[in-house]
Amino acid sequence: MSTRQVTAIGFDADDTLWQNEQFYRLTERHFASLLADFADETHISARLLDAEKRNLSHYGFGIKGFTLSMVETAVEVTEGRVPAGVIAQILDIGRDLLRHPVESLPHVHETLEALAGRYFLVMITKGDLFDQERKLAQSGLGDYFDAVEIVSDKTAVTYRRIFSKLADGPERAMMVGNSLKSDIVPAIAAGSYGIFVPHELTWVLEHVEPPVEAPRFRQIAHLGELHSIIETIG
């Protein structure tokens, strides 16, 4: 067994390895423009967020749930008067999200290349199974990873299960991601290191306070700084 303190590294996918939230924001603006005759953009966005919150337990995370929430919001905002043509356009922009090309973030390829083979690398992502598989395939990053876990949600239980099953346990693992709520706080609660890589756009439902007092919390500006953090941990 390795004498390193960390032997496994988990990576979030959306907005950690590749761009994601910016495409949702653009789609949301397009959606609001379709309903401009019924309400202003701020009101529509607030109603959409309410629908997303309600629907998470039904549809989970991902584009399909987001699209259904847009449809539901359109019906609510228009009091049932939304034209069929607008519903068709909403479905079209949802499909466009599912077809959007994958754009890797800076420092991703060189960082994964430097770590692959030296650590057990696992991509841990939540969302729609088919969409996440599509993005991984298009990203060209799949060969760097020893395992891929697509989960319905990320909790301390999730991280304990994954790192215990695939590696040397959560205490000898770290999780790298842009979401404090999903990637960092639960990983630290599981006993792992949590390496926070902020993204300029993060979904409001993923916002929590950073656990700055936690001994295993670290923050870096971009993935290019990950290797130096790993070296200080050992």
Rank of each mutant, 00 (worst) to 15 (best):
G191V: 08
A190V: 06
A32V: 11
I87C: 08
A187C: 07
D12A: 07
R95N: 12
D50Q: 11
A147C: 07
T7G: 00
L105D: 03
K154T: 03
M1Y: 05
F130P: 00
T16M: 05
A46S: 14
S164D: 11
R81Y: 03
V212C: 02
D37V: 08
E28M: 15
L26T: 10
F163I: 02
T3V: 02
M123K: 01
E213S: 14
E209I: 10
A147G: 10
T155H: 02
F61Q: 01
D131N: 11
Y24T: 06
Q22R: 15
L112D: 07
A114Q: 14
D40G: 08
F145D: 07
A74D: 09
M70T: 09
V82W: 07
P83Q: 13
E76V: 09
T158M: 03
T78N: 03
A167L: 02
V197P: 00
A46F: 05
T125I: 05
G224K: 09
G191E: 04
G62P: 06
M70L: 15
E149F: 08
T158Y: 05
R216P: 01
S164W: 02
H30L: 11
Y144W: 13
D15N: 12
E171T: 11
V208R: 07
E21C: 04
T42V: 11
K165Y: 09
Y24I: 13
S45N: 10
F38I: 03
S179F: 04
I90W: 05
R160E: 10
G65C: 08
I124T: 08
V75S: 02
G127T: 06
L17C: 13
D50R: 09
R161K: 13
S152I: 02
E209C: 05
R29K: 13
S33E: 13
E72R: 12
I230E: 00
R118Q: 14
V204H: 09
Y119R: 04
T125F: 05
E133H: 10
E110L: 03
E113K: 10
Y59D: 12
R218W: 02
G191N: 06
T67E: 14
T155L: 01
S182N: 11
L34Y: 09
S228N: 11
Q138W: 09
R47T: 09
E171S: 12
L201M: 13
I150K: 08
D37H: 12
Q89G: 00
V82Y: 06
I9K: 02
R216Q: 14
R161A: 11
A221E: 15
P198W: 04
G177Q: 01
V204F: 05
A51Q: 13
L129M: 12
E149N: 07
G62F: 10
P101N: 14
A32P: 01
I93K: 03
D143R: 15
A88D: 12
S2V: 00
L56I: 15
L105H: 06
A46Y: 04
Q132I: 08
G117E: 02
P215N: 07
L26R: 14
L26I: 12
I220V: 10
V208S: 06
E110W: 03
F23Q: 10
P101S: 14
A36P: 00
L112Q: 08
G94A: 10
M174F: 00
I63D: 02
H30T: 15
W203N: 10
R54N: 11
D168R: 03
E209V: 13
I44T: 09
F196Y: 15
A74C: 12
G194T: 03
I184N: 01
S45R: 14
L68S: 08
A74V: 11
F38W: 15
I63F: 05
D183P: 03
V82D: 04
